[in-house]
Amino acid sequence: MVVLRENMCPGLDGDLVSGLRAVGVKTVEDLVSSNIEDLARRCSVSYKALLAIRRVLLAQHTAFPVSGADLYEELLSSTAILSTGNTSLDKLLDSGLYTGEVTELCGGPASGKSQVCFSVAVNISWRLKQSVVYVDTSGGMTAARLLQMLQVETDNTEEQMEALQRITVFRLFDVYALLHCLYELRGASLQQAAVGGGSVKAVIVDSVSAVLSPLLGGKQSEGMSLMIQVAFALKTMAKDFNIAVLVTNHVTRGRDGEVQPGLGVSWSHIPRTRILLERHEHTSTCSATLIKSSRQPCNIREQLDLNT
């Protein structure tokens, strides 16, 4: 997998790297899987030195087993459940958004996905005093609406401004920009954002399907690969930094007119929890149905009011 470079580990100097390359050993994988005795003879280096290098490289590149008890300890100490501020939604989510997991809201146009995202962002930033990253891929993010929601919660202008300050908005309109953003966030911004009061506890992508769906279908295979890359980046970010990730998705209609979440079967494995939103016509309420969950029975239904 990884290309052999100088000083990757003690004893692996420039001469040795070029010597190995001359006999066709370019990557760590090549070195580890080749016959060391044979390799030592062909490169005329000491068998012991090569064996030591192999041991170090293996240690550097293998995954370590962790006991379930330790994992459980870690889970208890690091997982947070972020209340969405809406009791019906919290009921479906088993008391809120779990950090380390990807949660998905799907629904048709104007079903209230963005409104739920706004209210989750406001609640986490105002009530829980944590930072939120909001990735907007349709240009629909409206700070005036966030302010409106905050005004229902508090009259204190200073608190409102502080809460808005804790929400970082990225407006990205293609998949590469989204990937770049996610990897940049992993790199530096998450720690930086932590300096400005409250660490980033939630990343909201509204909507993930807007950037992915133009890539899918037809004869292009690249789209699928990019979708998996986005999924992988979101999942590992959620896990590694203990972040609750909330994404929105569109819905499609099956042959009999039944509603199903968009982006196909491969994507359906990515979110741990999925909620389907359906707007009641000519009202400001929508019904939310739990369609995938690892903690609760599916198909529980709750009513949400989008006006508050």
Binding site: A121, L146, L147, Q165, I167, T168, V169, A177
Partner: peptide, 16 residues
Amino acid sequence: VPPPSMSALQLLQKEA
């Protein structure tokens, strides 16, 4: 270069 970002407060000012 990190992608451009702004806080919701800056966005509010811009919207105004």
